[in-house]
């Protein structure tokens, strides 16, 4: 039972590390599937898919970067 739980946890870990990122990818997929299902031109579906996935990757990485320290205020010295 413990082994099964470990395997299931590992399988979930294959796809999900940052919950917000995973939900955003699934959301993008849902939107793209919806757009395609409504009969949008395939080119639009493709552009949405490429731009969306790249945008999500850039967003998650930039959110995770450390905040830059504000420069020291010389007036407080």
């Amino acid at each position: 039972m413990k082994l099964l739980a470990t395997i299931l946890r590992e399988i979930k870990g294959l796809f999900v590390e940052d919950n917000r990122f995973a939900v955003a990818i699934i959301g993008l997929a849902a939107v793209v599937i919806g757009v395609a299902g409504m009969g949008a031109p395939p080119a639009l579906t493709g552009i949405l898919l490429v731009a969306g996935s790249m945008g999500l990757l850039a967003d998650t990485v930039l959110r995770a970067r450390p905040k830059a320290k504000p420069p020291d205020d010389p007036s407080k010295a």
Partner: peptide, 18 residues
């Protein structure tokens, strides 16, 4: 498979970039 690959591949890519 495509959606699972997006989840899997972009997770690895995000971690590797960081």
């Amino acid at each position: 498979i495509g959606v699972l690959l997006l989840l899997f591949g972009m997770r690895w890519l995000r971690k590797a970039v960081l």
